[in-house]
Amino acid sequence: MTVRELLLEAARTFSGSDTPFLDAVILLAHSLDVPKEKILAMLPEEACDVPASFFEMADRRRRGESIAHIRGFREFYGRTFLVNDDVLSPRQDTEILVEAVLEAGDMCASMPNASRPLKVLDLCTGTGAVAISIAAERPAWHITASDISLKALEAAQQNAHRLLALPSAVEFVASDLFSGILGQFDIIVSNPPYVPRAQAEQLISDGWKDPLVALDGGIDGMDFVRAIIAQASEFLYKNGVVLLEMDPSQVSEAVALFKQAGFCEIRIWKDLAGRERVAGGRYG
């Protein structure tokens, strides 16, 4: 059996994956501790001395566990974030949220009356991927990251210590949305739970290791989006911005909610597949 045949055989069992062959390549590379490019170069070769760990990981993938949770880390915005069963594994689409924050923040910082570092609040921070990426890209900004889960905050702090030259650049706060938040901010950003409850429960049943609390957005998935938009103005400086990630099917309702709450200059950002993924607006 060649390496290609080995990978194809494993990939055929990854029925829940959009990229089954790539998944198999990544798992073999991880088990051999080599770059995936080396695996691709080995495709015509005989599959000799395949580590038992490859078959163990392939079985976990077959049962629905994500590549990130199997390996214990996920690449995001050019950095490697540790993940575990207590946090949502950051998705590549969420990098668009970081881009939107940097774009909005740079515009705020360039205004004639900008006289202090920007203050950014990241709600539902999870692994800290968004907050830490922003802090790494804009070290002068003041970043606060919050989550209702203490275990998630522990994971986020661990990532901050690994990835930031000054880990204290991000202040971590235990908070159920705005309940523990003090002060005002120039930008409020969030990738909140937005999966409809029944779908979230099915994903967990199918083997997803992301915690239910990080997926479940209520009956229609919009509970947190609605709550953030409704409350955000109390925590924004004048002309402050809110930016939220959501499912493309939820964007039109979010835009309407932004308008009803008094936001203007409402914009939509598309993900890498061209789907509407982030909505935001300016208040005041």
Score class of each variant (00 low, 15 high):
Thr2Leu: 09
Arg4Gly: 03
Glu5Gly: 10
Glu5Thr: 07
Glu9Lys: 09
Glu9Asp: 13
Ala10Ser: 08
Ala11Tyr: 10
Arg12Glu: 15
Ser15Leu: 14
Gly16Asp: 11
Gly16Arg: 14
Ser17His: 00
Ala24Ile: 08
Ala24Asn: 04
Leu27Arg: 10
Leu27Pro: 06
Leu28Lys: 01
His30Lys: 11
His30Thr: 11
His30Gln: 03
Asp33Cys: 02
Pro35Ile: 13
Leu40Thr: 00
Ala41Asp: 14
Leu43Lys: 07
Ala47Cys: 12
Asp49Met: 09
Phe55Gln: 05
Asp59Trp: 10
Glu65Lys: 10
Ser66Glu: 13
Ser66Phe: 03
Ala68Leu: 06
Gly72Met: 00
Arg74Asn: 04
Phe76His: 04
Tyr77Cys: 13
Gly78Asn: 10
Asp86Ala: 14
Gln92Lys: 08
Asp93Met: 03
Thr94Trp: 00
Leu97Asn: 01
Glu99Arg: 15
Glu103Ile: 00
Ala104Leu: 02
Ala109Tyr: 02
Met111Ala: 10
Pro112Trp: 05
Pro117Asn: 07
Val120Arg: 02
Leu121Cys: 05
Leu123Val: 12
Cys124Leu: 04
Thr127Asp: 10
Gly128Val: 03
Ala140Ile: 05
Trp141Pro: 14
His142Leu: 08
His142Met: 12
Ile148Gly: 00
Ser149Ile: 12
Ser149Arg: 04
Asn159Tyr: 02
His161Gly: 01
Leu164Ile: 08
Leu164Cys: 05
Pro167Phe: 06
Ser168Val: 11
Phe172Asn: 04
Val173Tyr: 03
Ser175Gln: 05
Phe178Arg: 06
Leu182Asn: 11
Leu182His: 14
Gly183His: 08
Phe185Glu: 07
Asp186Leu: 07
Ile188Lys: 04
Arg197Val: 02
Arg197His: 08
Ala198Gly: 03
Ala200Asp: 05
Glu201Val: 10
Leu203Lys: 12
Ile204Met: 12
Ser205Asn: 13
Lys209Leu: 14
Leu212Gln: 03
Asp216Asn: 09
Gly218Thr: 06
Gly218Ala: 01
Ile219Ser: 14
Ile219Tyr: 01
Asp220Cys: 09
Met222Cys: 12
Ala230Gly: 01
Ala230Gln: 14
Ser233Trp: 09
Leu236Arg: 09
Lys238Arg: 15
Lys238Ser: 14
Gly240Tyr: 06
Val242Trp: 05
Leu244Met: 08
Pro248Thr: 01
Gln250Asp: 12
Gln250Arg: 04
Val251Pro: 08
Val255Gln: 11
Phe258His: 13
Glu265Gln: 15
Glu265Phe: 12
Glu265Asp: 15
Ile268Ser: 02
Leu272Gly: 02
Glu276Gly: 04
Glu276Met: 10
Arg277Lys: 13
Ala279Asp: 08
Arg282Asn: 00
Tyr283Gln: 14
Tyr283Thr: 04
Gly284Lys: 07
